[in-house]
Amino acid sequence: MSIVMLKDVKKSFDKLQVLKGVSFSVAPGEVMALIGASGSGKSTALRCIDRLELIDSGEIVVCGHRVNDPQLDLRKLRLDVGIVFQSYNLFPHLTIEENITLAPRSVKKISRAQAREIALASLAKVGLSEKAQNYPEQLSGGQQQRAAIARSLAMEPKVMLFDEVTSALDPKLTGEVLKVIEALAASGITMIMVTHEMNFARRIADKVIFMHQGYVHESGSTDILTSPRTSELREFIGDELH
């Protein structure tokens, strides 16, 4: 049984077809790295999984939810899926702790004290316990991104989606965020991460999907990163290394 399954997914923006028949699946506990050149449709694929975009045809099933079904209970889907973006998107008017407790309290109706406990536990996981009472603007980019991860984790999703979560950070801050994600991967949570960090993908991914011009061009174990079968992937990896 897979936790995330895409079958022949097509998606266009106006006349531009971005996904031209994408299929892949992720098993429970698996860490999947989604790589590919800019514009190849990686973000779009992730957004379709969380139904931030509607697909034109094909099928997506996430934790048993048929994502393209008009009858879908969006709330249940969002409870099962956590997503973290490149731009953190913390709520600037709330402290870090309030950012994290907001959804458990208002969606899951958890008591204030219990939500606070959950928040502190998930902040501890990302190494930010001492920043609970700060506002997002008082944190560095790397800290904000870790707080965003903690906010997602506090909802205990079954699958986490990461979209280039380190692209806005300088190398020093990138490291601290990657460390958090690596620990998460080791904890057994299912995740799909779009990343340009090839070495990182090689280290923690179970499976790699290479997207090229709207298709899954190559997929397999992390071995394809060292010995790509197609010239497109070879070229892409070459570009990423330089």
């Binding site: 931030l52 973006f85 998107n89 709520f91 008017h93 907001l102 208002s106 969606v107 909802m155």
Partner: peptide, 30 residues
């Protein structure tokens, strides 16, 4: 208020009313 704020709240399973009153309005009021 940036669209990304709506989206972040949506991804946390907040209903539209909750998104509006807990995330967007407090920022818009400022």
């Amino acid at each position: 208020v940036p669209k990304a704020q709506w989206e972040a709240a949506e991804c946390l399973a907040l209903s539209r009313t909750q998104r509006l009153f807990k995330v967007i309005l407090p920022q818009a009021i400022r």
